[in-house]
Amino acid sequence: MKTMDLQELEKRFQEKIDKEIKIEPNDWMPDEYRKTLIRQISQHAHSEIVGMLPEGNWITRAPNLRRKAVLLAKVQDEAGHGLYLYSSVETLGADREATIDDLHSGKAKYSSIFNYPAVTWADIGTIGWLVDGAAIMNQVALCRCSYGPYARGMVKICKEESFHQRQGYESLVTLCNGTPEQKAMAQDAMNRFWWPALMMFGPSDDESPNSAQSMKWKIKRFSNDELRQSFVDATVPQAEILGLTIPDPNLKWNEATGHYDFSPINWDEFWQVVNGNGPCNKERIEARKKAKENGMWVREAATAYAAKRSMKKTA
């Protein structure tokens, strides 16, 4: 292809984006746009799947049958989200199993939050409230992403997500109105999950080099810091209603900006966890690898059966 053509194609592509016309799988798109999306969507898919593990580990211990059913349905939804996202990644020509292998080899990343342990029942409510809450903040913005299949997947996911946050909050309301032990359990969970939840929005804008291009392509609509600020602003009053203290002595309302001020984030911890040194990185990846390995013979069995049957049909 001649250089002129490529420039022309890129120009037309950007014009479509600027006019808010969605890009569909068979449309021409710059290689870098495709690569960025494959990376982002598969990372998002991996986060949904790895995210099943900390909560999944409490399904057998849920304190009553209603909570057990709710948690099962919630974690099951995350599996569904992973699937929707893998299917939108496949529209870009990527292969689901290959992207999963990248996760298992450590080449692909996922949300750092899932490398923290869920050690008490209050962690389950807190994850629903803060972690799903932060995810929703991100995902609502992605519903307007320029890539059609991703944006549509996000619309479906966002509809399902709203129950995730509410069930978590409801569970915390029960704990915070319960016995002193229950309230203390909730506060302890808050202390451990607050900062990792804020880290979910990713590095600050000045440390996030790919952001500008993603914004121009409308893959992203808001910067990491903007989304993080919206999350803090929405969450602080919710914590007040619960009567929980946010573990940040510098958190306070700023009349001038109309936002809450908060302490700087410990980015050292963030990068350590992203790069494999979180408390549960190894267990999470091991669990997913084991699931895939244990599934190989099942896959092969169904494939072999389908082949035998179609041979019988044609015979």
Binding site: V173, P237, Q238, I241
Partner: peptide, 17 residues
């Protein structure tokens, strides 16, 4: 019904949920 957000009670005054 627990798969729908309206199944959960949230106290008055809670916003953005």
């Amino acid at each position: 019904v627990y798969r729908h957000p309206t199944f959960y009670e949230v106290p008055d005054g809670v916003k953005h949920m």
